[in-house]
Design a protein around this nucleic acid. Structure first.
Lengths: 340, 340
DNA sequence: CTGAAAGCGCTTACAG
DNA sequence: CTGAAAGCGCTTACAG
């Protein structure tokens, strides 16, 4: 049997309200009463029922974080940041993997978790503009990442074009001229990798370097296996790159594995740059040069934006969607610089 | 404003019950009524309030999974398995990082999430026997991993001693004789790495090989950085191992990084075996030989055990705690066998 | 300083 | 096939 507040009240010989007051640390309770109630609580092993509390309060303090998958360390690291920061603010985070599937993303956006969560932070992969337009007015929503939408929601993302240009410039400055891009998506109209691809193209154009389609390798997803396969295809195609800029670190790690198997040295034969700065990259045989988005800043911005929409006192004008651009940094390591 | 069932009922000109019937797909509703209600739902954008439903039902369908951290890919992979399997059974998983801290572990065990979750799956690092003894009767609890307790709870873990012996035997069979263990814990009375250390010791003893303390390197935690540092210390100590068996893959990856920096070849100079079979290991310069616990089996066993305790119809005898031992396999790769 | 009552949004016997 | 009422376990005005 689960112990309710009423049971405690009976045992202590007080009303439910008094027990509630004690549990919630209300100040004006006589020490004697408080002691009696506390004893009843301990004896019965009473724990307040959070669901009842949430219903009563009209909010739960739970926010959902919908990410493609936890197996991608970038998202795992980001999730950890969000959870810890939210916990410090008294909020609980419910992680909802979408597997990068549109139907899943739509489900969360439409409010499957209504009443359970106060708001939603979503990092979409396949979601379309129309999915957001049809949404209706549900719980506050904050968007995360490279995909861009017209809908009026707060959107947290680093400047992906600038970051991709920075990465590409780094390779150009090292004297590389045949710089490939690894991780475009097969026959997609709206490229998820859109902005990074554009940055790569712009920077190469500015330098007068080759940026042909023969240097763009597509992938099905963004895993290590995708990177390994794409690198193999690129090498087999005869494109002969002297550097690769990869959509993310996982793809880069897969690419480096293939290069190793082919007897190509990193960075002497092919320099490699990733994106995300996941911890694995630092422990590769050739530590991975990468773009490091400021994950903590992203996590905090996302939570802060959501809580602002939740708090009537500091709600931004309802129609104002905000673009927030946390910082990033190029982290040069051995995969481009070689061993010191 | 949030739309409630009552609002829908008013608009459709029916009672709340009828709306509830439609929402829950109850069979005996006239098509005309159903249509009218559905239209009201669509027009108002009604979404059932899950918190209210949960309170009414007396259960939430939410189970908590308390793990040390998501940044360890083993836990991320395991969490993903648990979430997906639970989702297939209609359950939601709430991830609760403990950071391997006893106070956090105790909090969850004591029921901070009472009323919000139906049960708890915990992978403890620092939790002690007494913490479980004092627990009182709360929501069902399932334990995961190497730590062992006297308390009467279901416990899911592979046979860690046997797995460690298998790993050590593999190295012995390859002719290695100075096999170090990386990842014991500094001055702990109850070693978290207890069972794996024992397996290592037993197997070496059976083979008449060295198993002295000079071959045991301690770490503060189980990260790549811990592995890198411990390997450096071990090499500096003059222990001169020709192989290392590591507490987990992260420690092994860190160790390999240090070996590379010191100009030692894997596996020619030092063979390396990890534990967990995280995906990173497969993409190392020398793909990592490891013990692969059957993560999917572990995830399912944990969820099944918890749900069994929740379902009065198939509850096991209340005092019977069960030990469930999912399988594992040695996965030999380049870090012990070399390149094919 | 404490009590009795209402209500958060659902679902489920109980009637009809 | 549909409605009116009670209750899940809390907290919060409202009284005293």
């Amino acid at each position: 049997m689960v112990v309710s507040l009423k049971d405690v009240a009976e045992r202590a010989g007080v009303s439910a309200k008094t027990v509630s007051n004690v549990v919630n640390g209300y100040r004006h309770v006589t020490p004697a009463t408080r002691r009696r109630v506390q004893q009843a609580i301990d004896e019965l092993g009473y724990r307040p029922n959070l669901t009842a509390r949430h219903l009563r309060a009209g909010r739960t303090g739970i926010i959902a974080l919908a990410l493609p998958e936890l197996n991608n360390p970038y998202f795992a690291e980001l999730a950890e940041e969000v959870i810890d920061y939210a916990a410090g603010l008294g909020c609980t985070v419910l992680l909802d993997p979408t597997h990068g599937r549109r139907d899943q993303e739509v489900l969360f956006v439409r409010g499957v978790r209504a009443g359970l969560i106060d708001g939603l932070i979503l990092s979409p992969i396949e979601l379309e503009n129309e999915d957001l337009a049809e949404r209706g007015s549900e719980a506050p929503l904050v968007l995360l990442g490279e995909r861009e939408y017209d809908a009026p929601y707060d959107h947290i993302a680093i400047d992906n074009v600038a970051a991709a240009r920075t990465a590409t410039r780094h390779l150009l400055e090292l004297g590389r001229r045949r710089i490939a891009f690894l991780g475009a998506r097969h026959g997609r109209t709206r490229q998820p990798a859109h902005l990074r691809l554009r940055g790569w193209r712009e920077e190469l154009a500015a330098a007068g370097a080759a940026a042909g389609d023969d240097l763009v390798a597509t992938t099905d997803g963004y895993t290590r296996a995708d990177g390994a396969r794409a690198m193999a295809r690129l090498l087999d195609s005869g494109a002969a790159p002297d550097a690769v800029f990869c959509y993310n670190d996982l793809v880069a790690i897969g690419a480096m594995r293939t290069l190793g198997e082919r007897g190509l040295r990193v960075p002497e034969d092919v320099a490699v740059v990733g994106f995300d700065d996941i911890e694995d990259g630092r422990y590769c045989a050739a530590a991975l040069t990468t773009i490091a988005p400021h994950k903590r800043a992203i996590a905090r911005a996302a939570v802060d934006a959501l809580l602002a929409r939740l708090d009537p006192a500091r709600t931004p004008p309802p129609d104002s969607s905000r673009r927030i651009r946390p910082g990033f940094a190029l982290v040069p390591r051995e995969s481009t610089l070689g061993r010191p």
